[in-house]
Design a protein around this nucleic acid. Structure first.
Lengths: 227, 227
DNA sequence: AGTTGTTTAAAACGAATGTTTAAAGCGAGC
DNA sequence: GCTCGCTTTAAACATTCGTTTTAAACAACT
């Protein structure tokens, strides 16, 4: 069973088309339905391919899902590591970091379909981890976590234990993600208030204030402990 | 089609058994598998009932799920509204609130099976909202949200807008829930550190410090704005 | 043209699921 | 004792899904 035309021994054909179409259809469908809910048939319909194509080209639904994750999370991000240069004041870098990740997560430009699918998949895989979660963590989460840890290291000083950095990072990530994970719940709470997603800039300001305040609280405690 | 023996006109039989067994089996199975993954057959097996029993007594899988949610979230909580009395200092009440909810969410006493199922269902329904999410919000989330809002009102003063209270409440809830929602991801981040669930007391201390600091930051801003 | 290996296509398979059916079981009331 | 209504049971039904099968279409090389 030849699986991949491009790795064939002699006759590399012109663009297969089908395999790529399957992959990008898979990204879209998985992004809006998740692994379980998405069906091979729907993906093939969207890729204008036969039902058997998935098994032929990828070996099965699960392998296709894995391939879709790899594709999506290997994409280079537009904005990124401008917050890595240690010359800028740490507080500014944190601001920039929050701003950029929140924009990333609550994609506002409806043009960037690929980016939307990417973050939909991030949410899906986060809320419902599959055996292939590692791919996403390694390619997507880890770099962002490292970046934040460096910023927090600067903010909290060299004496701050790793565990404290991790806790703070999680507090910050939690707040960034919360509106996406609890949107459905928040919408049903009385009194009904506009969701953070509807007032992103305001929520970003809250986020930075609350987080800087929280870090200040942690820093005070660190200093008190080291006396 | 008589649905309920206890609402029958004349002959209320001895304990039907089956319907109750079905309900409690449903709670357990849904709690560990979610709505989609759970199968009617497994629930019936666990309830020692026939496959058709679900449709006979409840009308279908979905109605059974709804009934399970109603059952579980109608349970009165052991600990609760001791933080409602406005005499205690607000900061203490926040401490108590965090402590009690975290304990609730990361149930440590393995005896309380019902409580575990309840919070498993809470997580499942949060991460994968069903059409019956409202039940849970109304019976479970709303009272806890109200409690926290009152505490935050005391902490931030009467001039704080509702929107600010809500944002702060969400920041705090986000942190409480984060370890449960992102446990799988955090476990895969390098360097590997013990998860908050493995060191709950330490994490609770972080949570209270970070949150009080965050609130202090918000309060400062409120005062500055009102000058 | 003919051969070969790869890709597509239609159909069918086999397993699992929620639901329905039709008959049997069973307790109470006349 | 018998009927009637509610409950339980086993079997079947209808659908859906991932996957397999089998054969036809296709492109390149000899």
């Amino acid at each position: 069973m030849g699986q991949d035309s491009r790795s064939g021994d002699h006759g590399p054909r012109a663009e297969t088309g089908t395999k790529d179409a399957l992959l990008s259809a898979a990204v879209r469908v998985f992004a809006r339905k998740g692994f379980q809910e998405a069906t091979v048939r729907e993906i093939c319909r969207e890729a204008k391919a036969n039902v058997a194509a998935v098994n032929y080209h990828f070996g099965g639904k699960e392998a296709l899902y894995r391939a879709a994750l790899e594709t999506v999370f290997s994409m280079k991000d537009p904005a990124a590591d401008e917050f890595a240069d240690r010359t800028r004041p740490a507080e500014d870098r944190l601001r920039g970091y929050l701003d950029s990740i929140v924009d990333e997560l609550y994609v506002r430009c409806p043009s960037d379909k690929a980016g939307q699918d990417k973050h939909a998949l991030f949410m899906i895989e986060t809320m419902n981890p599959s055996p292939h979660l590692d791919i996403m963590v390694q390619l997507y989460v880890q770099p962002r976590a490292d970046l934040l840890r460096d910023i927090l290291r600067d903010l909290l000083g060299p004496k701050a234990p790793d565990q404290v950095l991790r806790d703070c990072a999680q507090s910050i990530w939690a707040q960034m993600l919360h509106p996406r994970m609890f949107g459905a719940i928040s919408d049903r709470l009385k009194p009904r208030l506009p969701s953070p997603a509807e007032r992103l800039d305001e929520y970003k300001r809250h986020l930075i204030r609350f987080s800087l305040g929280g870090l200040e609280g942690i820093r005070r405690r660190l200093n008190k402990d080291s006396e």
